[in-house]
């Protein structure tokens, strides 16, 4: 049974559908990446999975339980963590407070998991008492990932975690994502830097105009010349 399974997602903002029937699945301990052109519905799909937009059709299951239309804070309780692309840290709060907010639903395990996050991202420990808004882009991304890990999710969803970061920092972030995955957490990743993302992923989905275009193992997708030309920058 898949960790996360979404079938036939239809929905969008206002009256306009951006998703016209998208299927996605993430197996336990898998890294899955969604790629596609701008406007293909990648971020919308993530928001739809996380109950942030209203779905007109389709359903989502997590570990076999139907979570279609559940409120975001309930999904966190069910073991999903989400790092949105923008506005993903509490800017006026310190790094430590950001992590505490991640553990809002699980105060009992807060201290232990925070140590794990600090091990994963040692720089956060140094900056623990600094407001997150003052950090560099890469460090902010670490805070955002750290915050999402604080609930000990079974599945971590990341929306373009490397957008706007230098190649060196991007490398670092991907490296950490692999480390998180090795700890047993399923990863669903939306990426513009498709080639690098596929390099760490097990499987991938290519979306176009709100529909599944290609699906396959990361290696297959990388080898497919059509995908290479249209989606991987040649």
């Amino acid at each position: 049974m898949a960790l996360l399974e979404a079938k036939g997602l239809v929905g969008g903002y206002g009256g306009m559908d951006i998703l016209n029937g998208v299927d996605l699945a993430v197996e336990a301990r898998e890294i899955v990446v969604i790629i596609g052109a701008n406007g293909a519905g990648k971020s919308t799909a993530m928001n739809a999975l996380f109950g942030l937009i209203h779905l007109r059709a389709g359903h989502v299951t997590l570990d076999g339980a139907d979570i279609t239309g559940a409120a975001p804070n309930a999904l966190v309780g069910h073991g999903m963590g989400y790092v949105p692309q923008e506005r993903n840290v509490f800017r006026t709060m310190t790094v430590r407070e950001n992590l505490e907010m991640g553990a809002y639903l699980k105060p009992a395990t807060q201290a232990r998991v925070m140590e794990q996050v600090f091990t994963l991202f040692p720089v956060l420990k140094e900056k623990a008492n600094q407001p997150a808004g003052e950090l560099s882009g890469g460090q902010r991304q670490m805070v955002a990932v750290g915050r999402a890990l604080m609930t000990e999710p079974k599945l971590l969803m990341l929306d373009e975690p490397t957008a706007g970061l230098s190649p060196l920092v991007m490398e670092q972030i991907f490296d950490r994502i692999v480390a998180v995955n090795k700890a047993g957490i399923g990863i669903l990743l939306v990426e513009q830097n498709a080639r690098q993302a596929l390099a760490i992923a097990h499987r991938g989905y290519v979306l176009a105009t709100g529909r599944n275009r290609f699906t396959g193992t990361a290696a297959d997708l990388l080898a497919n010349p059509e995908i290479g030309q249209s989606f991987l920058g040649g």
Binding site: L52, V76, G77, P84, F90, R91, E97, M101, Y104, T151
Partner: peptide, 20 residues
């Protein structure tokens, strides 16, 4: 702290599991 978090960004507070 949850109150400050929501003041900072209500959507992110929801994503963090805070009952807004």
């Amino acid at each position: 702290k949850a109150m400050r978090a929501m003041s900072d960004d209500a959507d992110l507070a929801r994503i963090s599991g805070i009952d807004t």
